[in-house]
Amino acid sequence: MTDISMTVNGKAVSGSVEGRTLLVDFLRNDLRLTGTHVGCDTSQCGACVVHVDGLAVKACTMFAAEADGAEVATIEGQANADGSLNVIQQAFQDHHGLQCGFCTPGMVMSAAALLKDNPKPTEAEIRDYLEGNICRCTGYHNIVKAIMAASGQDVGAIAAE
């Protein structure tokens, strides 16, 4: 077992983990932050996306020990300080960008990473960026729309209004 400590959603946390403990398991089991999900075993679905030192990563494909000393952000820390939904979360609600909600934390974290790098992405850029985030429910229509809306673009003209 190795002792590790890191900052998660702005709070200092520590724990003792095995080498094989994945970051996602540390978050879910040790810290009880169960918003980060596991949907596959081949690092492809993106249900587990969190930010480590500001970068989107798949928490199922990184060991907890590798995040020792890092700043980790998860879906649980995304809301505004007063508890209200942040711009991206709000856009997902406004535009029905989620159904079962299982892919949603990863989608929101990926969207946040995208908008940080590219504040006004085109539809094609958003679709391309979401290559590693699988959603089975929404056909992505409203996810893409929500991300466009969150970036301040007018989505009124998009099909199916």
């Binding site: 999900h37 649980e76 939904l85």
Partner: peptide
């Protein structure tokens, strides 16, 4: 808009 979204969007869903 859906009320259940708030819990899913904040990681508070219970699967």
């Amino acid at each position: 808009t859906r009320r259940e979204d708030v819990r899913f969007l904040t990681g508070k869903g219970t699967y």
